[in-house]
Amino acid sequence: AITFRFEGQEKAKKFYEKLMRQNLEATIHIHGDEVHVTVH
């Protein structure tokens, strides 16, 4: 698994949606202002 870190939720959401379109499995974790997107 690879984890990407984002400042702010907007960028993270766009990235997450892009992964979903590519049929990749990903989970999102929100830590205050920092958002972690883990790709499995």
Results as ranks from 00 to 15, higher is better:
His29Phe: 12
Val35Gln: 01
Thr38Ala: 04
Glu7Asn: 13
Thr38Ser: 05
Leu24Lys: 07
Gly32Thr: 04
Val37Gln: 00
Gln22Ile: 09
Leu19Cys: 11
Gln9Asn: 09
Met20Asp: 02
Ile2His: 06
Val35Pro: 00
Leu24Phe: 12
His31Gly: 03
Ala26Gln: 02
Tyr16Glu: 00
Lys13Asp: 05
Leu24Glu: 02
Ile2Cys: 14
Asp33Gly: 08
Thr27Leu: 05
Lys11Leu: 13
Val39Pro: 06
Glu7Val: 13
Asp33Lys: 11
Ala1Ser: 13
His36Ala: 04
Val39Trp: 13
Thr3Ile: 14
Asp33Thr: 12
Thr27Glu: 08
Gln9Leu: 15
Phe15Gln: 01
Gln9Phe: 15
Glu34Gln: 09
Leu19Met: 09
Ala1Lys: 12
Lys11Gly: 10
Ile28Ser: 01
His36Ile: 14
Lys11Phe: 09
Ala12Met: 03
Glu25Leu: 14
Glu7Leu: 14
Glu34Tyr: 13
Ala26His: 03
Val37Asn: 00
Phe6Leu: 02
Gln22Arg: 11
Val39Ile: 13
Thr27Gly: 03
Thr3Tyr: 07
Val39Ala: 04
His40Ile: 11
Phe15His: 01
Ala26Met: 07
Ile2Ala: 04
Glu10Gln: 07
Met20Gln: 07
Glu17Ala: 11
Glu25Gln: 14
Ala26Arg: 02
Lys14Gln: 12
Glu7His: 13
Val37Thr: 00
Asn23Cys: 05
Ala26Lys: 01
Arg21Cys: 05
Ile30Lys: 06
Ile30Ser: 06
Lys18Pro: 00
Glu17Tyr: 09
Glu34Asp: 05
Gly32Phe: 06
Thr27Phe: 09
Glu17Arg: 10
Phe6Thr: 02
Lys13Phe: 14
Leu19Phe: 03
Gly8Val: 11
Ala1His: 13
Ala12Ile: 03
Ile2Trp: 12
Glu7Ser: 14
Val37Pro: 00
Asn23Ala: 06
Ile28Tyr: 08
Val39Glu: 02
Thr38Trp: 09
Phe4Asn: 01
Lys14Ser: 09
Glu25Lys: 15
Glu10Leu: 08
Glu7Ile: 14
Arg5Ile: 15
Glu25Ile: 15
Gly32Val: 04
Thr3Leu: 09
His36Trp: 15
Lys18Val: 08
Glu25Pro: 13
Phe6Glu: 01
Thr38Pro: 01
Lys18Met: 14
Glu10Ala: 09
Gln22Ser: 08
Gly8Met: 10
Ala26Asn: 01
Ile28Pro: 00
Lys13Leu: 15
Ala26Cys: 04
Ala1Val: 13
Met20Val: 10
Lys11Trp: 09
Lys18Phe: 15
Val39Asn: 02
Arg5Gly: 04
His36Phe: 15
Lys11Thr: 12
Leu24Met: 10
Glu10Thr: 06
Glu34Pro: 01
Gly32His: 05
Glu17Ser: 06
Glu34Asn: 05
His31Met: 12
Glu10Met: 07
Gly32Trp: 05
Phe15Glu: 01
His40Tyr: 14
Ala12Ser: 02
His31Lys: 08
His29Ser: 14
Gln22Lys: 10
Lys14Tyr: 09
His40Arg: 11
Tyr16Pro: 00
Lys14His: 08
Leu19Gly: 00
Met20Pro: 00
Ile30Tyr: 12
Asp33Trp: 08
Ile30Thr: 07
Gly32Tyr: 05
Gly8Glu: 14
Ile30Cys: 03
His29Ala: 11
Arg21Gln: 11
Asp33Met: 10
Arg21Asn: 06
Gln22Asp: 06
Glu10Lys: 07
Phe15Leu: 03
Arg21Gly: 06
Arg21Phe: 07
Asp33Asn: 14
Val35Asp: 00
Glu7Met: 13
His36Asn: 04
Phe15Cys: 06
Val37Tyr: 02
Ala26Asp: 01
His29Asp: 06
Lys14Ile: 12
Leu19Val: 07
Thr38Gly: 02
Glu17Ile: 10
Asp33Pro: 06
Tyr16Val: 09
Arg5Ala: 06
Arg21Met: 11
Asn23Gln: 08
His40Ser: 08
His29Met: 11
Val37Phe: 03
Glu34Ile: 12
Val39Ser: 03
Asp33His: 11
Met20His: 04
Lys11Pro: 12
Lys18Glu: 12
Asn23Lys: 10
Asn23Asp: 06
Asn23Glu: 05
